[in-house]
Simulated scan of single mutants.
Amino acid sequence: MRFGLALRAFWKALFDQASAERIAVALDEHAVPRLEKASAELSESTKKTQPIRKLSPAQNPAITLLATLQRDARLIDLIHEDLDQYQDAQVGAAARPCLKQCRQSLDRILKIEKLVDAKENETVTVPAGATAARYRWIGESSANGEATAKLVHPGWRAASVELPQWSGNEEDAQVIAPAQVSAP
């Protein structure tokens, strides 16, 4: 529960300035959010003549990731294509460059690496207290503490996250890819 909450707070603080300020206030009871501080410092006459500038909302990180994969590799186009009308060889030929570009994009913005540094079918040690987010037992395990197990899949983790910063308008925050048009 706390781990999930910490991750949610991390992502909100990273990509949403208003949420970051609320989190800062929650962690330090003496802090005052910049937006509230700025509005408190304005005089009554200034408040009547000048509207308080709202921060532009951040784009959801999932939308940013999808937009990047669409822009770089046209992943959404491939996923939404009716593949039943094509032969397997045609689908594979179309998917290969898309998948290569997706990997390059993910390597650039997420730095993905194996969670467990071992090969499949090797014996690995699962530490005591390992979470289900890191180790998922296939079948039943009677292990209560540290245990050895056969590695079925090494898992993946993001070593770093460097998503592009959103700078668009509020009404465009949900756009994954713009419509492309040409002159008649």
Score class of each variant (00 low, 15 high):
R2H: 09
L5A: 14
L5R: 12
A6F: 00
L7W: 10
A9D: 13
W11E: 02
A13F: 07
L14P: 00
L14H: 14
D16R: 06
Q17L: 11
A18D: 10
S19K: 12
A20N: 13
A20C: 12
R22K: 15
R22L: 13
A24W: 03
A24I: 01
A26I: 03
L27G: 15
L27M: 13
L27Q: 15
D28Q: 07
D28V: 05
E29H: 09
A31T: 09
P33W: 03
R34H: 10
L35V: 15
L35H: 15
L35D: 09
E36G: 01
K37R: 15
A38L: 13
A38H: 04
A38Y: 00
S39R: 15
S39G: 02
A40H: 07
E41I: 01
L42M: 15
L42F: 08
S43N: 04
S43I: 04
S45Q: 09
T46F: 05
T46I: 02
T49H: 09
R53D: 06
R53V: 07
K54A: 14
L55S: 06
L55A: 08
S56D: 09
S56G: 12
A58W: 03
P61H: 13
L65M: 13
A67I: 10
D72E: 14
D72V: 03
A73Q: 04
L75N: 02
H80Y: 12
E81F: 01
D84R: 13
D84L: 05
D84N: 11
D84E: 08
D84W: 01
Q90K: 08
A93Y: 01
A94P: 00
A95C: 03
R96Y: 00
P97R: 05
K100D: 12
K100G: 01
Q101E: 11
C102Q: 00
R103Q: 13
Q104T: 07
D107N: 14
R108T: 12
L110N: 07
L110T: 01
E113Q: 11
K114F: 04
V116S: 05
V116L: 12
D117V: 10
D117F: 02
N121P: 02
T123G: 00
V124F: 04
A128E: 15
G129Y: 01
A130C: 10
A133P: 00
R134Q: 04
R134S: 10
Y135L: 06
Y135P: 00
Y135R: 10
R136Y: 03
G139N: 02
E140C: 03
E140F: 12
S141R: 05
S141G: 13
S141W: 06
S142R: 08
G145H: 10
A147V: 04
V152Y: 10
V152H: 11
H153F: 08
P154Q: 08
G155P: 06
W156N: 05
R157D: 04
R157N: 07
A159L: 11
S160D: 14
L163A: 14
P164N: 13
P164R: 11
Q165M: 11
W166I: 04
G168W: 07
E171A: 11
A173L: 00
A173Y: 00
I176T: 08
A177R: 14
P178Q: 12
P178K: 14
P178F: 08
S182N: 09
S182L: 06
P184D: 06
